[in-house]
Write a protein that binds this DNA or RNA. Structure first.
Length: 792
DNA sequence: TAACGATCTCTTTTT
DNA sequence: GAGATCGTTA
């Protein structure tokens, strides 16, 4: 790993940046943004302007001419974060950001493998398995190997395989400890063979293939090493072993890596994330400068005090304490209820009051530890007629009907995709039963071919039905040649019989609507996103392939043309299928509506809200019982709680319940130990602290419950209403300080007149979505864009 | 082979 | 409580 000796650093003053770009940065942020090209670790606390630093850094590097857009790679974990970065960058830079290598680890790997599919040993139209697909693929392997599903639980086997890949291990690399692992490794090998045969890759495979190709192909590695002068990694604390090794492959001797992370927000150790990567990075990249961003711009003092006090109970920390200049703000409110049901009722009342006081519902988040907890909340919200939106849970592209439609589409692209084949071969039912399928699978296994290729081997009625199915898919492929993506999907939904099936189903209405929504999603994908974004095939594969086969390593010949302009575009359908697999898609509830935000704490990472409710703070739930066995687990739960607390800007509620329905039965819970780790001075109990059963409150509640009349005003009766919060009115300002609000007309020098649709974020991070009519819809960073309010 | 009901299990987090 | 799986029946 080569480094940058200090005598080669640019002298004193950094290259001049355009006015405005570096404004409003505090000294630490400024240092991070304008650091000379060398490896650096940025310890960025919650709400310390981490994303701002990352994006401003990229913009600064480009605008000062230190690197071209093609020389930057920025990696994130979630699609949300990647999108956010692109949005902010496009507001800061006058150049198209589309061709830049900014995306999730998996998104970038996909891009890489699409470009070098041949070298990677993949079919050009390889498909991506999501976790569901992976599970069913593993099940098939286990069945095919005649293994006992009791001993080889498909889920655990899937876990095992994913874990191996995250450690960069192929079957041959895995240490055989006992008979069971030996068998597991066999399953792993068989699974790999099956995936390869079917031309599909799972999430781990995307990473591992990319890593291996970079490792084994020197020409390719040198090319990318030279290309990426600046590599920026977001949420570095969440990287696993493989991702870190991957990063080391892409970082060449001339590259500068900026790793941004927060060890206190490491909440994915359970799936392989290694916080230790931060220390390893510091050592292996010989980082001589660690920049700490400790000033918090998000939350008031009491909230921050709570977060700091809590996290101080963890032992292994890199050390960091958040501070703010915003003043103490309101105390953290704590509520104890008698049941999860009562908790939901109380929460709704409280949220309604806030809404009446002017807090947007979308600025109120309800967080919980596990998805199962959302049910009670949802039904209470539904009954109260309050709009809400649940994040997580079943996402759009994971719904059964959507997966069915996608399976047909995938078969059009790749008939050998057995996972998809099995999913829809008898859906809607067409007389192909378990027996027939078994025969088909036997035939396929015997000949080592795909199900599609083996159809002829099955005789009798089942065989005829199978032939009809294959003919149907072939006919769909024929009929959709040359159609637009929208038309293709519409055709498939009809021709497959899915539409008819759901039309006659009694509960099929919603599913039909979702299928319509799929058509819309495809349409939106083509027009707005520009489907080439993730699926541009770079025209280098042949050349690079030639090098691999021993011709002189004319590295210059591998030079990549700027992706977006000359990239050969794969079919819209293929691109859309990739999109569907890589981005599960928010479950697109009532989009655009002002709705309460419900999500798990994990899903909330990286987000912020004016008001946050953290519910279900009970032993066994939060911290979760599965994590209590070891100290590491508990520390991770604490970090999770830390993440939850630091989501709140202005008001934070913590609630726990004495009883809770779980697994269909009532459990009696003790309040979470985390309460004992919060500073009393920052808290305010809004119910008597030691209220036990048998209190008057309890009797009222029981009575109301037994009458079936609900709780109405009973819960929470008798306590002082809170005064309306002064901060409730939505505010944002132009870079000149003029007030802005949604619905407001504005003027922009380049885009002309527009109307603000939504405002997100606040302060330096505030941004607005503005409809500029014929100039289209734009997201602009308000601290950067020059906007003038106009009278409407 | 399909449809229905009974039974069983598993419930942390996700690209 | 819900989903997947299993078993019975037509």
């Amino acid at each position: 790993m080569s480094l940058f000796p200090s005598d080669s650093e640019p002298a004193a003053a950094p290259p001049t940046a355009p006015a405005g770009l570096l404004q409003h940065l505090n000294p630490e942020q400024y240092a991070a943004v304008t650091l000379p090209p060398r490896h650096v670790l940025v310890l960025a606390g919650a709400g310390s302007g981490k994303t701002r630093v990352l994006t401003t850094r990229i913009a600064w590097l480009i605008q000062t001419g230190q690197v071209g857009p093609g020389g930057v790679m920025a990696v994130t974990f979630t699609n949300k974060a990647a999108k956010e970065m692109l949005t902010r960058l496009s507001a800061m830079l006058p150049i198209p950001v589309r061709g830049m290598w900014i995306g999730t680890f998996h998104g970038l790997c996909n891009r890489f493998l699409r470009a070098h599919w041949k070298l990677a040993g993949l079919p050009q139209s390889f498909q991506i398995l999501d976790s569901q697909d992976q599970l069913s693929a593993v099940k098939r392997v286990i069945k095919a190997m005649n293994l006992d599903e009791e001993r080889f639980v498909p889920k655990q086997v899937t876990w095992f395989i994913a874990g191996c890949k995250e450690d960069g291990q192929r079957p041959k690399d895995v240490e055989v400890r006992d008979e069971h692992t030996r068998k597991l490794i066999e399953v792993y090998q068989a699974y790999e063979d099956q995936c390869q045969r079917e031309g599909v890759v799972d999430f781990g495979e995307l990473m591992l293939r990319t890593y291996e190709l970079m490792r084994d192909n020197a020409a390719l590695r040198e090319h990318y090493n030279r290309r990426f002068r600046h590599i920026l990694v977001d949420e570095f604390q969440d990287t696993n072993k493989l991702q870190y090794a991957w990063l080391k492959m892409f970082a060449g001797p001339e590259s500068a890596v900026m790793a941004v992370g927060d060890d206190d927000q490491s909440i994915y150790a359970f799936r392989g994330a290694q916080v230790g990567n931060m220390a390893d990075f510091e050592r292996e990249f010989r980082v001589d400068q660690v920049i700490k961003l400790e000033r918090n711009y998000r939350s008031f003092g009491n909230i921050l005090d709570a977060a700091n006090a809590l996290i101080s109970h963890n032992t292994r920390r890199l050390g960091k304490n958040l501070h703010t200049e915003a003043g103490p703000g309101e105390p953290v409110r704590v509520y104890e209820s008698n049941s999860d049901f009562a908790e939901a009722q109380w929460l709704i009342e409280e949220a309604q009051q806030l809404h009446r006081d002017g807090v947007a519902r979308s600025e109120t988040a309800v967080l919980y530890r596990s998805n199962a907890q959302s049910r009670v909340l949802e039904s209470a919200l539904f009954n109260a007629g309050i709009p809400y939106r649940v994040y997580g849970g079943l996402r759009f592209f994971e719904r059964a009907e959507i997966k069915h439609a996608l399976a047909y589409l995938r078969l059009i692209e790749n008939p050998n995709d057995d996972t998809s084949f099995l999913r829809v071969v008898n859906f809607p039912t067409r007389g192909i039963g378990a027996r027939t399928i078994e025969q088909l699978q036997d035939a396929a296994r015997a000949s080592g071919r795909s199900l599609h290729q083996s159809v002829g081997a099955v005789a009798g009625k089942g065989g005829a039905n199978l032939a009809a199915f294959v003919a149907l898919v072939d006919a769909m492929r024929e009929a959709t040649q040359g159609l637009t993506l929208r038309e293709i999907i519409e055709h498939v939904i009809e021709a497959s019989g899915l539409a008819d099936f759901y039309r006659t189903e009694k509960e099929g209405r919603e599913r039909l609507e979702n299928l319509d929504e799929l058509v819309n999603a495809a349409e939106a994908f083509v027009t707005q996103e520009g489907f080439g974004k993730d699926a541009v095939a770079l025209p280098v594969d042949e050349q690079a392939g030639a090098i691999a086969e021993g011709s002189p390593p004319a590295v210059a010949a591998v030079d990549l043309a700027p992706d977006a302009e000359t990239g050969e575009i794969v079919s819209p359908l293929a691109a859309f299928l990739t999109h569907a697999a890589l981005e599960a898609g928010d479950n697109q509830a009532q989009a655009g509506q002002d709705a309460l935000q419900l999500m798990t704490v994990h899903a909330a990472k990286g987000l912020e809200f004016d008001v946050v409710f953290i519910t279900g703070l009970e032993e066994g739930l939060f911290p979760h019982e599965n994590s209590l066995s070891d100290a590491d687990g508990l520390e991770e739960e604490r970090r999770l709680m830390y993440v939850a607390i630091t989501r709140a800007r202005k008001r934070l509620y913590l609630s726990h319940s004495q009883t809770r329905m779980l697994h269909g039965q009532t459990r009696y819970n003790v309040k979470s130990r985390f309460f004992d780790e919060l500073p009393e001075s920052a808290l305010k109990w809004i119910t008597p602290r030691h209220q036990g059963f048998g209190s008057g409150f309890e009797r009222d509640y029981r009575a109301a419950w037994q009458r079936g009349s609900g709780l109405g005003g009973i819960v929470g009766a008798g306590r002082q209403p809170d005064t309306p919060p002064a901060w409730a009115a939505p505010k944002a300002t132009t870079s000149e300080g003029q007030a802005l609000r949604a619905g407001q007309g504005v003027f922009h020098n380049k885009f002309g007149e527009g109307v603000i649709l939504t405002i997100e974020g606040s302060g330096a991070d505030a941004r607005a979505q503005i409809n500029f009519g014929r100039h289209g819809m734009k997201w602009l960073a308000l601290s950067v864009a020059k906007l003038t309010p106009v009278e409407s």
